[in-house]
Structures are given as C-alpha cells and as structure tokens.
C-alpha cells in the first residue's frame, strides 16, 4: 500500500465514521430531515454546518502550501459556470435523494449491512453514472469535459 492509498483509507474511515455517528446511514433519519411538513428532524443541518465549518477553515490552512504532501499538485475544480447540466443534475439528484434517503456516500457507507434494496440502489446509481459518462465521451461533438464539484 502506497502513501496515497493510506491517506485515502484514513480519510474514508473518518468520513464513514462521521456519516454513521451523524445518523446519515439511517435513511429514515435522512427522510425525516427532508420532511419539512412532517415531524421535521433538523439534526442533519448540524452535520452539514459542522462539516462545512471544519472544511472551510482546514482548506484555507492547507491551501497556503504549494502542494499536497503525497501528490504533485492540488486538483481543484475551476470556477466554471452555473449551466443547465449543473441545475438539471442537481435537481435529479435531489429527487433521488428524497425518494430513497440515500445520497452516494451514506449508501456506500451502509454496505457493512448489505440488503437487496441497498445493492439495487447502488447498482442503479452506477448504471446512471456510467450512462452519463458514455454519453459525454461520445465522439464527433465538442462537449465540455467532465466537471467535478
């Protein structure tokens, strides 16, 4: 295992532990957070607030350095533009999130307790990602390249 893999493993462990402790690996909790008109459970707003706060401060400290410790350069998305694929993609994603209570991270992090439904969700998610990637890679057009968050 090289240094980059070890860093990935540690970051993944912390990320997964955080999702689990926060309650995000329980889809009923997530749907409860999204259910403003029902018995709204605001706890998950605190997850995002705490995570964004730590990341906001930590990123600023880290980005004072010229490069990361185990790689040649920081790979950050450019500013980009707010376009139709971004808006449509976010809307579709939010619909799927609300239907199931799963976004990608918590769904993967729930694989420690696999079920048919979870595996079905993840299989469909991978198929959807694959379809967009193949469509984007199609020849003879000048689509902009893949943009990540």
């Amino acid at each position: 295992m090289n240094r980059q893999m070890l860093a990935g493993l540690v970051a993944g462990l912390l990320f997964g532990a955080g999702l689990g402790l926060a309650g995000m690996t329980n889809p009923a909790v997530v749907i409860g957070f999204l259910d403003l008109a029902g018995a709204w459970n605001p706890a998950l707003a605190f997850v995002m607030a705490a995570a964004v706060m730590v990341t906001f401060i930590g990123y600023r400290i880290v980005l004072r350095r010229a490069q990361p410790l185990f790689a040649a350069r920081f790979q950050l998305p450019g500013p980009g533009v707010i376009d139709v694929p971004l808006a449509a993609g976010a809307a579709l994603f939010g619909m799927g999130w609300g239907l199931t209570g799963y976004c990608p991270g918590p769904a993967v992090a729930s694989l420690g307790m696999p079920s048919m439904g979870l595996v079905g969700y993840l299989g469909a998610m991978l198929a959807g990602m694959l379809a967009v990637r193949i469509w984007r890679a199609r020849p003879s057009t000048s689509q902009p390249g893949e943009v990540r968050a």
Partner: peptide
Amino acid sequence: LIAPPVASMASLLGGGLLVGVGTALGGGC
C-alpha cells in the same frame, strides 16, 4: 449505526438511477 432501506424496491432502483445520472450530470453530490 446502519439501518436498512425504508423505500420500496421500485423507489430504490428509480432513486438510485436519478442519483447516478444527476450527480454525474451536475458534477457532484
């Protein structure tokens, strides 16, 4: 800390597809 899915299989399959297409198109989750 892990609880099972609550949605129906049809919702999980449809929702998973929406999440996959949406996050790939929108560039993140």
